[in-house]
Amino acid sequence: MRTFTIGERTLAESALEFRTLLADAYEQGHRAMCMCKEPAVAMYIARLEDQYLIKRMPLSGRDHDPACPSYEPPYELSGLGPLIGNAIQIDASGKADLKLDFSLTKRGPRSAPILSAEPSEPGIRSEPRKLSLRSMLHYFWEAGELTEWRATWAGRRGWGRVRTSLLNAAAQMTARGGPLGDVLFVPEVFHPEDKDGIAARRATALKSIQATGSGPRKLMLIVAEVKEFSAAREGQRILVRHMPFPLMIEEGAWRRLALRYETELELWRSSEAFHLILIATFGISTAGIASVEEVALMVVNEHWLPFEDINELRLLEKLSHLKRKSVKGLRFNLPRDAPIVSVTLPEQKPGPVAMFIVPGSAGEEYEHALTDMINARPEITPWVWRVAEGEIPRLP
């Protein structure tokens, strides 16, 4: 059971008055200090529906004791490593200041939308000093603790919780001199009894990107679940859940999107249990039509955990029944042919376990990179599944 210092009081989270203290501290903007180590580790208080929770500050998970539930595996094992200190910098307040590789303004006439660059494509170089649109989505998932799972959470993570986690995470980020949360739109879960209230809040949130003339247009980020794609008179409509109007995308951009994210789309279409997550920059024309400028996609399972292929999905399914926590590793800007940790088991005894999946196509260069990654973190026990050698090895 964790112990926290909030203001001048130090309490175990099992104390009867702890929840009341959290609510008061949230309203006053106080930090919670986790006492798992000396010096104590700063955390923030978030509101999730009708509950108050204590969450990690950006990139602070490694500062906690390995036995603490807030401990997070070393980011060097995932695609997050190259971005730290470059695209992601922690400022004096403990918030993450981000350098973005996409624009939030549009100058001149609308041109054809472009897709978030995938470093794995020939001629496209990974840029560790800036966050691509795809890596921004991965960072939202990581900072929102949506990469974490344990069996006791089954049935308790729906879009409402995902949305709140994303907004809470964005509140700890800044970009281009302002709060990132001010330019992030995540659709609310639709409730018929609050239809008018939801519409009013949506209109207020989107008011700043409504075009009023021919000058520069402001854009926003949207993170949403795709419901379906459908043909329009010109181009395609992207229908997202909990939003009454589509996002329009031109036909050429749609064809490139379908080609670039062929794997994600194929996985999503293979099961009704999966969700397809979209991140895009978008604006609204003078006619009130929402159109995307840049877009990236990510497929997640029924627990909203991202996965890249069927092998990774099978591993997640095996781990989903365990009470111990698992943490999904993400690729961020790294290309698909670079090794990353697939899943980490931070609560494993006597020490954390990093789980790697080596694809059947892996060559000597891949194996060398994997060996270097494992040797760089000797305190982490490696578990390796080489797909070409057969079925999933016994779990740790």
Score class of each variant (00 low, 15 high):
L77G: 08
Y26F: 13
P393G: 07
T105C: 07
Q172D: 05
I54V: 13
T147V: 15
A96C: 09
L305Q: 11
W385K: 07
T263C: 06
A290E: 11
E193A: 12
P216S: 12
D65C: 04
R176Y: 07
E72H: 12
I88L: 10
S361L: 06
S70F: 12
M43N: 13
P73V: 00
I392D: 04
G29S: 04
P244Q: 09
E228P: 03
Y52K: 04
R2M: 14
A287C: 08
E364R: 14
A112L: 10
L83A: 06
E391D: 14
V384I: 15
D182V: 01
P73K: 00
L395T: 10
L184A: 09
I114G: 08
P378S: 10
R314A: 14
S320F: 02
Q51K: 12
D63E: 15
A25M: 09
T147S: 15
G158C: 09
V343R: 03
P66S: 01
P113Y: 01
L276E: 02
R269M: 14
E308F: 07
A280I: 03
I222Q: 11
V327C: 10
E188Y: 08
W159V: 04
K37V: 14
G363E: 06
R62A: 14
E27Q: 13
V189H: 02
R324L: 12
T10Q: 12
K207I: 03
D65G: 02
G79C: 00
R331S: 06
G7N: 05
E364W: 06
Q210K: 12
S214H: 07
